[in-house]
Design a protein around this nucleic acid. Structure first.
Lengths: 184, 184
DNA sequence: ACCGCGATGTATCGCCGCGATACATTAGGT
DNA sequence: ACCTAATGTATCGCGGCGATACATCGCGGT
């Protein structure tokens, strides 16, 4: 998840942790943050996996100054060849994991680097996922409507409308995609 | 979080795990699920804390049948006096934690059991939280608009609109609250 | 009468993300 | 010269998630 996002961002240019986080916020927008508590461990894992490499931005040690305190330098991360492969691999997979709530947004953010066929499949997957959920909620609501207090009801309805909105959005996107890539 | 939800549901009537989860889905609607992987550990913690007690729905052991396999019975959970106190305590607190994304929905679901003053404070807190986020996103968007590809842009804008929608919803709710409880 | 299957039911495991926190460095303002 | 805000790296414990494992029960089909 975060892995995909990091791969995507480093695909543009090498970055250090802090920048990475800024970009994350800027790219994913209001929909997902990713704290340092996730970022650094993920970077660690990715490094271990050999998908990224570090350029110690290295500690320009001033001649006279004793290096008593570790004199921390910037740590710049960049993609390795394996990392690029991994990125392509993740971009290509259009399974249920690509259209779960949190994951979808990240995949979407890198759509311009994704194969058009895959784009459509992900959008459609996401849409039917939401439609399922909507139907479940709708019938559930119909069954229990009377027993619920007005606040719970309001919550449900707001939720339903949000889902509806997203479904409409997705439908538009799918149509646009089809228009631009008539496919087979 | 889950703790609050469980307290709220058990406040109505004792339930066992499975029912609890059904109610969770029904009450929180499309917006949050809560898997068993959260539920049972939470129930464990709450039991340890003395907020809930278990009624072993107990293994009606048939006379002749040897109890070789543990013959698992239903486990019914119910609130203790401490649990009711804890519930009231959680309902009364209207701090930042009450209007974070995930938390807010749960608080809202039990608004009918919440003090009117607290309700308004939570709604307002949530709203300003969203407005902050919106401003951040809006200015960020304005600064970087050119550098973003159309998909990222679309994602941002969809996000912004969603936030706008929720802000409008909250504003309506706040007005209704004020109308019904003019207060000081 | 038997089988299988889906709903009901309890529970655990490892992974991952979050918020809080700590601490160091650098730029700019007063 | 001093203070603050932004930049920067990193860790810790907690809580939630999806997958998984099992067991029981009622029901329809053969």
């Amino acid at each position: 998840m975060l892995e995909l996002a990091v791969l995507g961002l480093l695909h543009e240019s090498p970055l250090h942790g802090y920048e990475l986080r800024q970009r994350l916020k800027a790219t994913l927008g209001s929909f997902r943050a990713f704290s340092y508590g996730s970022l650094y461990p993920t970077l660690g894992r990715m490094k271990d996996a050999g998908h990224i490499a570090v350029d110690e931005g290295d500690a320009q040690v001033v001649a006279g100054a004793p290096a008593l305190t570790g004199r921390r330098g910037k740590v710049v991360y960049k993609l390795t060849a394996d990392g690029k492969e991994r990125f392509a691999e993740l971009l290509a997979e259009a399974g249920p994991s690509s259209w779960e709530d949190e994951t979808f947004g990240v995949h979407f953010a890198f759509f311009s680097k994704t194969d058009p066929e895959v784009r459509v499949r992900i959008l459609e997957g996401r849409r039917s996922r939401l439609e399922e959920r909507r139907e479940g909620a709708r019938t559930g609501l119909a069954r229990t409507r009377e027993r619920l207090d007005s606040y719970t009801l309001q919550l449900q309805e707001h939720g339903l409308e949000s889902v509806d909105r997203e479904v409409r959005w997705l439908t538009e996107l799918i149509e646009t995609e089809r228009k631009n890539h008539p496919s087979r």
